[in-house]
Amino acid sequence: MADELKLLEKWSLKVHEVKLGAGPSAGGSREIIFNIGGQSSFPFLFKEGDIPNRPLIAAEVLDCVEDDWPVGLRTDLASVSKDPVEWARKMASDSGADLVCLKLQGLHPDLGNKPVKDAMALVEAVLKNIKTPLIILGCGSADKDNEVLPAISEATKGERLLFGDVVSENYKTLAAACIADGHNIIAESPIDVNIAKQLNILLSDIGMPLDRIVINPTIGALGYGLEYAYSIMERAKSAALAGDKMLAMPFICFVGQESWRAKEAKVSLNDFPQGGNARMRGIMWEVVTAMAMVEAGADILTMRHPEAIKIVKSAITDLMKR
């Protein structure tokens, strides 16, 4: 039934639509490709604007696992966490994740300082074993990332992957590679709308098309500053829909890595008896962090626990029903 009572916002711009992955006809080898963004309203308000794409979940895969994982998470991922290729294959096929986010943190001088060729071989093997697009993250050490990521970009030319992150202080090297090789890029800003916009302008100035940029607003976990990114995303989305094309990019939120750092996601039942089942508490920490980000306008969530992925995927599917 049609309601007489309604108040529609008069938005003037759509979020840029970003294509993830390229199939054989477009110069890549992906069997599954996705679009993100493209919406002209706040999340799930179908009566107000177009929402052509649902938020995607990217399963986090790491080339080396931190030793501070809680028991539940460690046990649940034990069968794959030592083999990133199998991990990626399994998450892409069984967990319901839409795509894979490979973080090459073992490149970091403090975390193993793996050689470039290892990373390149890993990316190649992962791509062979999954049908979906891939997100590739560096290790956070600017020098090492600038050495490795452009090489991977070139080796995967035409696949239309998503590379990250670039920041205001270090964007040229990776951006130039992604422009040349036809990839998308993640632009990271420290919970700040102005810096997000400025970085998009810088990227645009060196030739990165606006529909190949995804914003990482740097979220905090539930209980650890989640509300800052929540509001930054809503502010940026309002500005974008009202016409600011330099902020009208989809968002990627690193839910898994943040939520599993939270004390409440880690602490055992013995140390926190009133907190209930520790394994499920950790999973729900990730789920609730993800749900808040989805409502704030996230377009890609990177997530870690397979069960959290299933729960959030199901909630997104429900929200996408009209």
Partner: peptide, 13 residues
């Protein structure tokens, strides 16, 4: 509590 605590935390945020 494993379901309620995350919700109370979200509300607090």
């Amino acid at each position: 509590p494993e379901y309620v605590l995350p919700l109370l935390t979200l509300r607090q945020n």
